[in-house]
């Protein structure tokens, strides 16, 4: 569970728009759902951050309305070879991380 997946090109031209797609396996339990008469305990990722060389590139605050296995796609551009870090944070502070590198020519 909670395996992050990143889909993006390994290389790009400087300034070229590239798509970054992210997905993490996670139930995103809202704490509102009932199963066999019991409330399923809340377990939510509330924050996603994509950092480019440590600087905020894209971030998301999730509330109840985000689907299980949250998927996000966005378009970025890089002027130089960049190290990307992706962080998903649960409400209780637990984190899942992934890293990726894009070579820019």
């Amino acid at each position: 569970m909670s395996t992050p997946r990143i889909r993006m090109p390994a290389s790009a031209k400087a300034g070229e728009p590239i798509e970054i797609r992210t997905l993490i396996d996670h139930p995103m339990e809202t704490g509102l759902r009932q199963q066999n008469g019991q409330t399923v305990p809340r377990k939510m990722i509330v924050r996603f951050e994509a950092l480019a060389d440590g600087e905020m590139l894209f971030a998301a605050d999730f509330r109840n309305g985000t689907s299980a296995n949250p998927y996000l796609a966005f378009m970025a551009r890089f002027e130089k070879t960049t190290a990307l870090t992706f962080v998903w944070r649960e409400e209780d502070g637990r984190e899942y991380r992934a890293t990726q590198r894009i070579s820019v020519s």
């Binding site: 728009p17 590239i18 480019a52 600087e55 905020m56 590139l57 894209f58 971030a59 998301a60 605050d61 966005f74 378009m75 970025a76 551009r77 890089f78």
Partner: peptide, 8 residues
């Protein structure tokens, strides 16, 4: 969603 300056 917060959009940084690096987005295309």
């Amino acid at each position: 969603y917060q959009l940084g300056a690096g987005l295309a």
